[in-house]
Design a protein around this nucleic acid. Structure first.
Length: 659
RNA sequence: GGCGAGGUAGCUCAGAGGUCAGAGCAUGCGGCUCAUAUCCGCAGAGUCGGGGGUUCAAAUCCCCCCCUCGCUACCA
């Protein structure tokens, strides 16, 4: 049977431009796809965009576009970016593609018919004081624990997927199949999640609230929400259920995701597949984030690392190499241009590039740039044998690590081999063989060196397609007829045919200096928004089904109902029973101080606040927050960079009215 | 607060009971001159977060504590 490999990236949510996080996942997927293809497998590489949902509606509306126009535009940004990064996908799927829509509806119908989708039964105990639902377990003697009065039973009319039914089965499956979720730390994390009871999944939104989505096949009043749309791309792209590609590739499916969407992929998706009677994917591979660590000179805020900027600054291959070389799979990685340059100079310029340069220059000088004859086994000396062994061992390790998505480790082994070849050349010292006229020995040494370059060039093809191409050209390899099987390449040494014309010199990776003058170069405070692709969506997926609705217009009289004024913080202390809350004593010009509980603890310590002027919403109904009653609210901005208090920019007095 | 993951050389990390704890980068010294001021060799450096325990033996297992990150609750 033909061996296959199917790799996917998440479909990216089109509410933001592509950034480093997207680029990493996609480049990794691309290199894995190429890697498996180079082992003679038939591969399918899928990426695409996720285009439904209310965030898209909102973003579109803000720009005065309709949702489809907006989605078209942003989706195009992704689709057009990938070829620039040498991403060679087999399909770019959009959740607005007609075949995807049809597939989603079919899948929904199937699960519905199987009885795992139910309507509105989700009744909840809702406390109006808390404005939230409680599970029965949370209630104390049937009362709301905060308000000590019985909550009301109200019903949400939505459709739910009976996910809880598959909890135990899934736990067992993950338990029994260690390779299903990797790295191990994420597997453990999922098992931990599964120790807690699983809620059923709300999978619909009434059209009255959200129309930008795929209509439920069994109720035209609703569209499906998020997961039964987005996750299904992985099979709809293959033409599930009877498509040829589906039959061929689905059994070899590997999903590549960042850790923020672990839960949907590790829990929602397998249970959905199970409910529909579809076999599970083969493996989930989870990676961490790129952290962009701060550099104080940066004053720009939006420090999103733009892949194309880096490409044009340092070259695409350097960029791809760095991402795969530096990120320990499963861990978070640190991105910085210094790091990129450091890596580039150490590995690519000094070790690898210079190796090519010295070998080709010597072949040029000593043999007129034509490959020497194959060495005779009988002539091999100890260091030759050692090099051959090194080439086999390290390439084997390279392949194993790459297979397991441990690209950093894989490339480390490859560099180890590169260093080994450098050492071999130092030990054998071809220049002195030449001077002494030991021609035959010189031929052997350079033949081995050139064969080493060949292995390295081929091994790097999945990571740096362009540079690999150039290396092959310099080695006079006939790329058209070159049919490489990496595994075979690993066990057998192939020498350049005698007389092959090779380049006289090589300057693959000239050393680079740091170029940081311009702002927006990539350094900055925090990891840009690489979690933005889906994280926001998952949050919106709470059991209360409370997605943010469009903010309606209000009259001025509505505004006048707000009693907003300046207050001065007279005292502040941590909330006794909540990590993120502070209790403040605020002078709002009333002759006494009022206690306000505010969620500021993550950004401000109590002593930071005392004496500061803040904006107070004074006539907000008092409310108990985790046991402490708050009289009003302190206004703050929730920006990308975190939390920031809203304050007047000139001297004012407590109690001054805001209008 | 609950759950999870981490804290190992100046930096980035590997190692998960057993020879003196490892690699790359950075630093210092030496060698070579084919090469992109590159390469090769040697060296220094670490109370393996802190404290207790189990063991002939602990970075590794157990308990407690401290710090960082993530999810989660309270931030209307």
């Amino acid at each position: 049977m033909e061996e296959t490999f199917y790799i996917t990236t998440p479909i990216y949510y089109v509410n933001a431009e592509p950034h480093l996080g997207h680029a990493y996942t996609t480049i990794l997927a691309d290199s894995l796809s190429r890697f498996h293809k180079m082992q003679g497998k038939r591969t399918f590489f899928l990426t695409g965009t996720d285009e439904h949902g209310d965030k898209i509606m909102q973003s579109a509306r803000e720009r005065g576009e309709d949702a489809q126009e907006y989605a078209d535009r942003v989706s195009r940004q992704f689709r057009e970016l990938w070829p620039e990064l040498n991403i060679d996908y087999d399909r770019f799927i959009r959740t607005t593609d007609p075949d995807h829509v049809a597939c989603v509806q079919r899948f929904l119908q199937l699960v519905y018919d199987n009885g795992d989708i139910y309507f509105g039964e989700y009744g909840g105990y809702y406390c109006f004081g808390c404005e939230r639902f409680f599970t029965e377990k949370e209630l104390e003697d049937g009362n709301c624990p905060d308000h000590q009065k019985p909550p009301e039973y109200i019903q949400e009319t939505n459709y739910f997927f009976r996910m809880s039914r598959y909890q135990e089965w899934l736990r067992g499956y993950i338990q029994d199949n260690p390779d299903f979720i990797q790295p191990e730390r994420y597997r453990r994390e999922v098992l931990a999640m599964l120790r807690e009871p699983l809620d059923d999944l709300c999978i619909s939104r009434p059209k009255s609230r959200l129309e930008w989505g795929i209509e439920l096949p069994f109720d035209s009043g609703y569209v499906t929400y998020v997961w039964f749309d987005a996750l299904l791309n992985y099979i709809s792209a293959l033409g599930w259920p009877e498509g040829e590609d589906y039959v061929r590739f689905w059994p070899a499916a590997h999903h590549l995701v960042a850790k923020d969407i672990l839960k949907p992929h590790a829990i929602f998706w397998p249970t959905m597949l199970r409910a529909a009677g579809v076999p599970l994917y083969r493996g989930l591979r989870v990676h961490g984030y790129w952290k962009v660590h701060e550099e104080k000179m940066s004053k720009t805020l939006g420090n999103v690392v733009r892949p194309l900027e880096l490409r044009s600054k340092y070259g695409l291959d350097a960029f791809r190499f760095f991402l795969l070389r530096e990120m320990q799979f499963g861990h978070d990685g640190n991105f910085s241009e210094e790091g990129l340059i450091g890596r580039f100079n150490a590995d690519l310029a000094n070790d690898l590039g210079n190796l090519f340069s010295r070998c080709l220059a010597m072949t040029g000088k000593y043999f007129g740039a034509s490959a020497p004859p194959h060495p005779d086994d009988l002539d091999l000396e100890r260091e030759d044998e050692e090099l051959l062994q090194l080439g086999r061992d390290y390439l084997e390790k390279y392949l194993q690590c790459f297979e397991a998505v441990h690209t950093a480790e894989a490339l480390e082994w490859l560099m180890e081999f590169v260093r080994g070849v450098n050492k071999y050349i130092d030990t054998t010292a071809p220049w002195s063989l030449y001077k002494q006229g030991y021609t035959q020995r010189l031929q052997t040494v350079l033949a081995l060196a050139l064969a080493s370059l060949r292995r390295i060039a081929l091994a790097l093809r999945p990571v740096m397609p362009d540079a690999s191409h150039t290396m092959c050209e310099q080695l006079g390899l006939d790329l058209g007829s070159l049919d490489v099987d990496l595994r075979q390449e690993c066990s057998e040494w192939v020498f350049l045919s005698e007389g092959t014309r090779v380049a006289k010199k090589s300057n693959l990776f000239p050393r680079q200096e740091l170029k940081l003058e311009r702002e927006g170069a990539g350094e900055g405070k925090h990891a840009s928004g690489q979690k933005k692709n889906k994280a926001g969506k998952e949050k919106a997926e709470s059991k209360q089904g409370s997605e943010s609705e469009q903010t309606p217009e209000i009259d001025f009289t509505d505004f006048q109902k707000l009693d907003m004024r300046v207050g001065r913080v007279e005292g502040a202390s941590p909330h006794p029973d909540a990590d993120r809350l502070l209790q403040l004593e605020v002078d709002a010009g009333e002759g006494y101080t009022r206690r306000i509980v505010a969620g500021l603890a993550e950004a401000y310590s109590p002593q930071d606040l005392v004496g500061r002027h803040v904006t107070v919403l004074a006539n907000l109904k008092p409310r108990k927050l985790r046991g402490v009653t708050s009289h009003g609210m302190v206004l703050a901005v929730h920006g990308e960079q975190g939390l920031s208090l809203l304050a007047p920019d000139q001297v004012v007095s407590p109690g001054d009215k805001i209008s």
